[in-house]
Simulated scan of single mutants.
Amino acid sequence: MYGESDVIRRRVSRLREQADDIRVSADKLVVQAESVPWHGRAAESLRGRMKERATALRSVAEQHDRAADTLAKHLKQVDLFKEQIAEAEARAGVLVAEGELDGFEAPEPGHKDWLEVTLR
Score class of each variant (00 low, 15 high):
Y2S: 10
Y2K: 13
G3N: 10
G3W: 03
G3A: 07
G3K: 13
E4L: 06
E4N: 15
S5K: 12
S5H: 07
S5W: 02
S5I: 09
D6N: 11
I8C: 00
R9H: 05
R9L: 04
R10W: 06
R10F: 01
R10H: 04
S13Q: 15
S13P: 01
S13K: 15
S13N: 13
R14D: 07
R14H: 07
L15P: 04
L15A: 08
E17F: 08
Q18A: 05
A19M: 00
A19I: 03
D20I: 03
D21M: 05
D21S: 11
I22A: 13
R23W: 10
V24T: 04
S25E: 09
D27P: 02
D27L: 01
K28M: 09
K28R: 15
K28G: 05
L29P: 00
V30E: 14
V31I: 15
V31N: 12
Q32A: 13
A33N: 06
S35E: 14
S35V: 06
S35I: 04
V36P: 12
V36F: 07
V36Y: 09
V36I: 15
W38H: 11
W38F: 15
W38S: 05
H39P: 00
H39F: 13
H39I: 12
G40P: 05
R41C: 05
A42G: 07
A43C: 08
E44W: 02
E44K: 09
S45W: 06
S45Q: 14
L46Q: 10
L46F: 14
R47F: 03
R47L: 05
R49F: 00
R49D: 03
R49P: 01
M50W: 06
M50T: 08
M50F: 06
K51I: 13
K51A: 12
E52G: 11
E52N: 09
E52W: 01
E52L: 08
A54P: 14
T55G: 04
A56E: 15
A61F: 11
A61W: 11
E62K: 13
Q63L: 09
H64K: 10
H64M: 04
D65T: 11
A68Q: 13
D69T: 13
T70V: 12
T70M: 09
T70H: 08
T70K: 15
K73P: 00
K73E: 12
H74A: 08
L75I: 12
K76P: 01
Q77T: 14
Q77Y: 05
Q77L: 10
Q77H: 11
V78S: 00
L80W: 07
E83N: 08
Q84P: 14
Q84K: 15
A86D: 07
E87T: 11
A90D: 10
A90T: 10
R91G: 00
R91V: 02
R91Y: 01
A92E: 00
A92N: 03
G93P: 06
V94Q: 06
V94G: 02
V96P: 01
V96A: 04
V96S: 02
A97P: 06
A97M: 03
A97S: 14
E100M: 07
L101M: 03
L101I: 09
L101H: 08
D102Q: 02
D102W: 00
D102L: 10
G103S: 10
G103K: 08
P107A: 11
E108C: 03
P109I: 00
G110H: 04
G110C: 03
H111C: 06
H111S: 15
D113T: 09
D113V: 05
W114G: 05
T118H: 11
T118L: 06
T118M: 04
T118P: 00
R120N: 10
